[in-house]
Amino acid sequence: MSPHWDEAPEWQRDTMTNGVLRALSGATPAELHESWRAEKLSAGWVYGPVKDPAAHPCLVLYEDLPEQQRVKDYLFHAIVRALVAPDKRKPPQCEGLPDQ
C-alpha cells in the first residue's frame, strides 16, 4: 500500500504528479507506463521479481505487463481524465486490455 500523500517520499509524489500531467496532456495508458518505466530506468532502477527500493517487477514493456497492471494503468488514466472538465475530455484509450 502506498503511503498518504504527505508522508510519501518526494520521488513518489513526483512520479504521480508526472503521471497526472501526462494523462492530462493526452498520453495513453501505454505511453504513461513507458514514461514511468523510462524515469525509473534513468534513475538506476532495474527489473526484479519483487518490488524493493531499487527494483520493480513492472519494469517491462507495456505489452509484457500482467493484465492486472495494464488494467491499473487504464484505471489511473480514466480517473485522471474523468476529473477534467467535460468539454476537455477525450475518450479513454483502451489498447492492451482484454476484450470487454
Results as ranks from 00 to 15, higher is better:
Lys72Tyr: 12
Val50Phe: 05
Glu67Lys: 10
Ala23Asp: 00
Leu41Gly: 01
Trp5His: 01
Thr17Gln: 12
Glu10Ser: 13
Gln69Arg: 09
Cys94Asn: 08
Trp5Glu: 01
Gly44Ala: 10
Phe76Cys: 01
Ala43His: 08
Pro57Ala: 04
Asp87Cys: 11
Cys94Thr: 11
Arg81Glu: 08
Arg89Tyr: 14
Leu61Trp: 12
Val84Arg: 15
Pro86Ala: 15
Ala55Arg: 12
Tyr47Trp: 07
Ala78Cys: 06
Ile79Gly: 05
Asp52Val: 02
Arg22Pro: 01
Pro57Tyr: 07
Pro91Thr: 13
His77Arg: 04
Pro57Cys: 06
Met16Ile: 08
His4Ala: 14
Leu83Ser: 07
Leu97Met: 06
Arg13Thr: 01
Pro91Cys: 13
Val60Gln: 03
Ser35Pro: 02
Arg81Tyr: 06
Asp14Glu: 09
Val80His: 09
Ala38Met: 10
Gly96Met: 11
Tyr47Leu: 06
Val80Tyr: 11
Tyr74Gly: 04
Glu39Asp: 14
Val50Asp: 00
Pro3Asn: 15
Cys58Trp: 12
Thr28Cys: 05
Ala85Val: 08
Leu61Ser: 09
Pro57Phe: 09
Pro9Gln: 11
Pro53Gln: 02
Ala54Cys: 06
Phe76Pro: 00
Pro53Asp: 05
Ala27Ile: 02
Gln69Ile: 13
Ala43Arg: 08
Val20Trp: 10
Trp36Cys: 03
Arg89Leu: 15
Tyr74Phe: 14
Gln68Pro: 00
Met16Lys: 07
Met16Glu: 09
Val60Tyr: 02
Tyr62Lys: 08
Ala23Ile: 06
Ala82Leu: 08
